[in-house]
């Protein structure tokens, strides 16, 4: 999978809109969700949301080692992340917000971190599957961000074979997007139906034959993505 810098940026920006509502993404976003080990609440942070009991420690360690504006203040927290619950630590949460808003280095570290954590594994999967089109990269990257990878039960619902197994790339992507769209739009949980703006965007791009992501803007959930 060979993407130009602009094609990669388009992929990232479309996903930023899906996730945060803005093209740039929300590097300072902090949420508290009850999705930690054994249902405990945990801090979720950053442009693509990494978690306290997941990979937050790794992200903060990268930032601390980069000597950012808030590295010294965040360093003592390295021993606590994932060990001591920090969801009620107002100082810690404010440091995370300030670093993302006031230190460009935190945004750079996040970009590199999320690239390594999500984008590169998605592209490795795309390469292994024999995909070559930029729009395929966007669909695959989205699936990694939204669902963690490709849910097996969805892959079993459509017949297309992977390009690496002599299948046709565009057929596989189209069938996957249609299947995912159907799953979300007819989901028994009403709130999950609200996420079909993602697959709708892909259906639109497939319909206008934008496999090279050359036709811009791409309208992502009502937001024009031009770069």
């Amino acid at each position: 999978m060979k993407l130009s810098d602009q094609q990669k940026r388009l992929c990232e920006h479309v996903i930023n809109v899906f996730e945060s509502g803005s093209v740039e993404g929300n590097y300072a976003a902090i949420s508290i969700y009850a999705d930690g080990p054994h249902g405990v609440k945990q801090v979720t942070y950053g442009r693509s949301q990494t978690t306290e009991y997941g990979n937050l420690e790794e992200l903060i360690e990268l930032y601390v080692n980069s000597n950012g504006l808030y590295s010294a203040q965040l360093k003592p927290y390295l021993a606590k992340i994932g060990v001591t619950p920090l969801l009620d630590d107002a100082t810690f949460k404010q440091l995370l917000r300030d670093a993302a808003k006031k230190d460009p280095l935190m945004r750079k570290v996040q970009d590199e971190f999320f690239d390594k954590r999500y984008f590169q594994p998605a592209m490795a999967w795309a390469n292994a599957g024999g995909f070559t089109q930029p729009l395929s990269a966007l669909v695959i990257y989205d699936s990694f961000i939204h669902s963690g990878s490709f849910p097996d039960f969805l892959r079993k619902r459509f017949p297309a074979r992977l390009p690496v197994k002599n299948g046709v790339e565009k057929d596989w992507i189209k069938q996957y997007v249609d299947t995912r769209h159907e799953w979300l739009s007819q989901h028994s949980k009403k709130i999950l139906q609200a996420t079909i703006y993602r697959t709708q965007c892909f259906k639109n791009e497939i319909a206008r034959d934008n496999w090279a992501l050359a036709k811009i803007p791409i309208v992502a959930n009502g937001v024009n993505v031009i770069d």
């Binding site: 999705d35 961000i145 963690g148 849910p151 999950l192």
Partner: peptide, 14 residues
């Protein structure tokens, strides 16, 4: 269903 994805909190909470 979406382990490791941003959809996971929504699935859990629902």
């Amino acid at each position: 269903i979406s382990k490791g994805g941003s959809l996971a909190p929504l699935e859990y909470n629902d």
